[in-house]
Design a protein around this nucleic acid. Structure first.
Lengths: 218, 218
DNA sequence: CTAAATTATGAATATTTTGTGAAATATTTT
DNA sequence: AAAATATTTCACAAAATATTCATAATTTAG
């Protein structure tokens, strides 16, 4: 489990880091929102201050959220009730008020991590929804029927968001390891998946000379 | 599922309401304990602030509890530890401390609902009814005779509503030990169960390439 | 702009998966 | 032990899905 600690004060980062180590979390650090965005990909949980130079916590959170689905706890100065509400609205998972008790912070991190593991059962983007448990896909609450291969493809894409995948890679991972098939087979399945995705067909992007990737556009 | 939100601050009610909608709960609102008492009858879960004008949460809870048996989560101001203890004594199901994370609140609501549901002894959908205590199944008040395996299958499906279950998973869970049987066995039982379910046969959905799932269509 | 390379697509064909009836076994009840 | 019930197996039909391939459309390099 990797925790990304984002705060401009080294002292605070160090205190949190210390406690994270005790709870067996690995730690990555960032000094501001910009750095956080770059490092978010590696993290399982983010603890982020709101007030930081270069880019504040909320702005960073908004950007990170579009790309990843990482539980985030915000550190706010005492009494910023307005911030708190605004943040919850954005989807922030929890708040800890400065000065905080490290024990409370760790309790909240643990709670959030635990909760998230359970919530990792759906993927949602606008009104496009994939229910991994039910193996079903919805657009506008209307179920979209995918064939097994199409569904597997979609899930693989979602789990590799933003990464360009070669046809070979797709064949190896979704078909059996030593599949001796035609490359065009992938294209055909992509075509069918795209058709079924309707207005979301362009979530699957052609990477010329390379393969395909799944990406949430901004 | 209807959630009764009781708080004198509209802002807080609105935040909770928003999240409830996302989780597909219906919402009823009340501004104080007195109103809550009047509206409690319609609710399946109650979320109630303690400090409210006219009538506080505890007093309202006591009265509601005499009449109904509705799971209740209390919202308390930070640090009112005494209240917390008193509340659990009264039979409150859970506590959330203000200011709270809506995600945490929803997680707790879901937990309470789930717990409460488990204690249910019947499953009802339209005129399809399963009486877990009596091990019997009715359609239109007419009893449907299922074999033990069929009944076990049905109960397992109901307890895993909306979740796609592989044949292997079904074999492992309904056929005790590691059963070394034919996959087609499951199909045969599904067939017979479906036949017995008559017009409700399509509650059991085939998940191609995967298995089956039990789902209430909307 | 053209040729070459790459990708998209429709349709025919092959393959896989599921539904089902009937027979064979196994288990429980009488 | 016989009868009644349940369970399992199996083969084949039916349905759904996967693959191939020819051709069209698109992009890129020169």
């Amino acid at each position: 489990m990797k925790v990304l600690i984002v705060d401009d004060e080294k002292l605070i980062r160090d205190v949190i880091k210390e406690y994270c180590f005790e709870s067996k979390y690995e730690v990555i650090e960032a000094e501001n929102g910009l750095e956080a965005i770059n490092k978010a990909g590696e993290a399982d949980v983010i603890i982020m201050d709101i007030m930081m130079p270069k880019m504040d916590g909320f702005s960073a959170y908004k950007i990170i959220k579009e790309k990843y689905n990482i539980p985030t706890i915000m550190l706010s100065a005492r009494g910023e009730e307005y911030d708190k509400l605004a943040g919850f609205d954005l989807g922030i998972d929890d708040y800890v008020t400065k000065p905080f008790s490290p024990k409370e912070l760790m309790a909240r991190i643990n709670a959030v991590v635990k909760r998230y593991k359970k919530e990792e059962e759906v993927f949602v983007y606008e009104d496009f929804k994939v229910d991994f448990l039910g193996h079903s896909v919805y657009i506008n609450d209307k179920e979209i029927c995918l064939t097994p291969k199409e569904y597997d493809l979609l899930v693989y894409f979602i789990n590799n968001k933003g990464i360009a995948l070669s046809r070979e890679q797709l064949l190896n991972n979704i078909w059996n390891y030593d599949y001796l098939g035609n490359d065009r087979t992938v294209d055909t399945h992509i075509k069918m998946l795209r058709n079924n995705l309707g207005k979301y067909r362009n979530l699957i992007i052609t990477v010329r000379g390379m393969g395909y990737k799944f990406e949430i556009k901004n």
